[in-house]
């Protein structure tokens, strides 16, 4: 008898855990979907031609931010992608993923990945704004962001390269291809779907980042920068600016644009992956 009641209580306890898991799932979905819905509902109505493409002299516009975001993406991706891919190639193809040097580089990359973005911002501020006395500039922001996304690209490229079967490398070398040719014509293309996904994710991080930019590109929201040596702004930074200066509607509208941007990037990543898989067959 006693055992039976105990078992009943026990069952009740686990059922209550199950119920709480439903509740938590509900809370999580409400919160997350709530964020999106809130932004969409609040912001969509406030998107106007002036806000999107207007002249900064006529009122609030995110055109400078849009162009700034594109420039930051261009600078940081052009710097970080070759560097990151080459680092991964060195680790996997030349060091066979083993040894002291590899461990040192991996540890460094892991540590870089864990540094909070504001520390990168501080670093960019100290190096580019102060030490090199460039002042706030797109260059400084772009380079700082490049260092920030480098770990992401190195790690996922490394993983993709490690998943390329050795038989591909052997096949190419046995045909008389040099090591470099094997890497560029066989190994990297076979790993390309993973690499492309990681690059798109890195673009996503650049687009989302704002803390780094406050300290490196400044927050000049009403002027389209004439050159990369000038200060500027980005979409994420504009949201902060609008929210902080009592314009939550404009902030929400900018957030809608930024969300669509991020969504488009995710779709692009999925599409690229699909196309590459189609081109190179099933296991690429």
């Amino acid at each position: 008898m006693k055992n039976q009641t105990k078992a009943k209580i026990n069952k009740g306890f686990y059922s209550s855990l199950k119920i709480s898991s439903y509740i938590c799932c509900g809370i999580a979905l409400t919160a997350l979907v709530g964020v999106i819905l809130f932004v969409m509902i609040r912001g969509t109505g406030h998107i106007s031609l002036q806000l999107l493409f207007g002249d900064p002299k006529d009122g609030d516009t995110i055109l400078p931010a849009f162009l700034g975001t594109l420039r930051l993406v261009a600078v940081s991706i052009l710097l970080a992608v070759p560097l990151g891919i080459f680092t991964a190639v060195f680790l996997v193809e030349y060091m066979r993923g083993k040894g002291k040097l590899v461990r040192l580089i991996r540890l460094t990359v892991e540590t870089l990945a864990a540094i909070p973005s504001i520390v990168y911002g501080l670093f960019g501020y100290l190096v580019f704004v102060v030490a090199l006395s460039w002042g706030y500039s797109m260059w400084g922001g772009g380079i700082t962001l490049a260092v920030m996304i480098l770990p992401t690209i190195v790690r996922s490229t490394e993983e993709s390269l490690l998943s390329v079967p050795d038989s591909y490398r052997e096949g190419a070398l046995a045909l008389g291809a040099s090591k470099v040719r094997t890497i560029f014509k066989v190994t990297l293309p076979s790993a390309s779907s993973g690499i492309v996904t990681s690059v798109v994710l890195a673009v996503g991080r650049v687009v989302s980042e704002s803390a780094v930019l406050i300290l490196t590109v400044g927050m000049v929201v009403n002027k389209i920068p004439a050159a990369l040596t000038e200060p500027g702004t980005s979409l994420a930074l504009d949201i902060y600016y609008f929210a902080n200066f009592g314009k939550p509607d404009e902030a929400a509208a900018t957030a809608v644009v930024l969300l669509l941007f991020v969504l488009a990037l995710n779709l692009l990543a999925a599409l690229c992956g699909k196309l590459i898989r189609k081109k190179y067959g099933d296991n690429a």
């Binding site: 079967p165 591909y168 045909l175 008389g176």
Partner: peptide
Amino acid sequence: RKNVGMVFQKPNPFPMSVYDNIAFA
């Protein structure tokens, strides 16, 4: 290796088209 070709135990075509595989060398 160009002069001494090799065929492996497990077929290892590259993940490319048939044409590009043959044209590789």
